[in-house]
């Protein structure tokens, strides 16, 4: 099985941690993977992305345009961007519907995208779209936990179980362990 998982969001949202947890869990499930993160300049509230490539005959760490089987996005404009450029026709876009207005929106030059814009791209690419937003999630840095929880349920990647993801989470998220587990399971009911 060859699989490309593209993750993106805004600097500070925890895209890198999300990718690291998912990567570790996939390895624990027995997959061969190559991943790659963006570091440096992009972290100052710019667009941030991570790539995970699963499969035996994969050598290059970055996913090519329109080749992501799954897109996991932590923000609406970033979800739109990834849907347009990275999502494979027939792929799956899962996004946490948070909103971080870029400067162009704040100064009134551009309009922040509507859900419809994402729906239209997914329709054009015959892709599946799922939006996640938890009502009672106060800490925005835990949106990535909700997203990965829903991803595990929906993606049905053989061997990628809640236990493996939670074990990987334990390694990366040092604080609030109980709270994280609670959010993880509450997102399941979503």
């Amino acid at each position: 099985m060859n699989l490309n998982i593209y993750l993106n969001g805004v600097g500070g949202q925890g895209v890198g941690v999300l990718a690291a947890i998912l990567g570790e869990a996939l390895i624990a499930a027995g997959y061969e993977i190559i991943g790659c993160d963006t570091h440096g300049l992009a972290q100052r509230h710019g667009s941030v992305n991570s790539h995970i490539r699963v499969g035996k005959y994969i050598y290059y760490p970055l996913i090519e345009e329109n080749e992501a089987d799954f897109v996991l996005s932590l923000e609406r404009l970033e979800a739109l961007r990834a849907a347009e450029s990275m999502l494979k026709p027939g792929g799956f876009l899962l996004f946490y519907d948070s909103c971080y207005q870029p400067i162009a929106v704040r100064i009134g030059e551009k309009k922040y995208p509507s859900l419809k814009q994402i729906e239209e791209i997914c329709a054009a690419k015959k892709a599946t779209l799922r939006r996640v937003k938890l009502k009672n999630l106060k800490d925005f840095r835990k949106q990535n936990i909700a997203l990965i929880s829903v991803f595990v349920s929906l993606a049905k990647i053989p061997g990628l179980t809640d236990e493996k993801v939670l074990a990987a989470m334990g390694d990366y998220l040092k604080y609030d362990k109980e709270e994280n587990i609670k959010i993880y399971y509450s997102a399941k009911q979503y």
Binding site: E84, P102, I103
Partner: peptide, 9 residues
């Protein structure tokens, strides 16, 4: 494409 860049801040 209707998305637009998010420049660092």
């Amino acid at each position: 494409k209707t998305s637009f860049p998010r420049v660092p801040q």
